[in-house]
Design a protein around this nucleic acid. Sequence first.
DNA 1: TGACAGTATGACTACACAGTAATATAGTCA
DNA 2: TGACTATATTACTGTGTAGTCATACTGTCA
Lengths: 124, 124
Amino acid sequence: MANIFQIMGNQSKRRRMGEEALELIAGRFRVLSEASRLKLIIALEDGEKNVSSLVKATGLTQANVSRQLQTLTEAGILGRRKEGLNVIYRIADQTIFDMCDHVCGSLQRRIEGQAEVFSSRSGA
Amino acid sequence: MANIFQIMGNQSKRRRMGEEALELIAGRFRVLSEASRLKLIIALEDGEKNVSSLVKATGLTQANVSRQLQTLTEAGILGRRKEGLNVIYRIADQTIFDMCDHVCGSLQRRIEGQAEVFSSRSGA
DNA sequence: TGACAGTATGACTACACAGTAATATAGTCA
DNA sequence: TGACTATATTACTGTGTAGTCATACTGTCA
C-alpha cells in the first residue's frame, strides 16, 4: 500500500491546480470544520451505528444529527444503508482519521511551542 | 523522524477528546476551508514572499490578502518577518501540504469511483 | 387499517465571516 | 520635513450555514 507521504513531487501538481480544484479541496476541509461533524465521525470510528445511537453518543439533537450526517454523506465521508426502520451510517473514507491525527500533531507541536514561551517568560 | 501514520492507537485518544479539543481541530480545518487561503499557501510553497508578490500571484485584492494572511498566521500556519517596508510571509507548518495531498488523494479516489459508476451505466 | 418508532425536511433565527472601499499606519528616501 | 510605498485596519454588506422546532415521511407491527 503506497503511502501518499512517500510519493513526492506533488508541489508542481499543486501549482497547476485550478480555481475549481481549490474549491473542491477547500470544501472538503469545510466539511471537517465543525465540531459536531467531527463528533459524529469519531462516534462511528468503532463501527457503524444508526441515527438514534449517534444522537445518544453525541448529545446533539436528532434533527441536527440528521442534517450533519447528510452533509458528511454527500461529501463521501460516510456511507449509509437502510435496515428496516433504521438508517445505519458508517465511515466510508478512512483517510479522515489520518487527517485528524495530522491536525492533532500539528496543534500539539504548536501548543508545546507556546508552552516553552510561557515557561521561559515566567522563568525569567 | 516518526511518521504519525505509523503510530497507531490514536483511536482511544480520539474517543476521550473533549469538546474543547474538537473545537480546536475543527478550527484548524476551517482555516483551510477557503480557496483564497489555499491559494496563498500554495503561492508560498516555493519560498517566502512579501504581500505585494502574493497579491500578484493570487489575483486577490491587497486588503483581502492581508486579512487572510492574518488568519493563517494566527493559526500558526504561516510565519512573518518585517524587512524595511515589506512584510515577508513563509510557511511555518509544512504538514499543511501533507493535508492537501491527503485531501487530493481522497477526492481523486472518490471521483474515480463516480467515473466507474458512470461508465458502467453508459456501458449497460 | 391505525398506532407507533426512526429518520428526514421545511421554515426560521442567529451568527460568523469573506470580500470591499476607504483610510490609517509604518517605514524609506529626497 | 514631505512625498511616497507597502501593509494593516475599520466599517460595512452580503452570503452561507449551524442549530432548532415542528412536521412530514417511511417502515413495522398489532
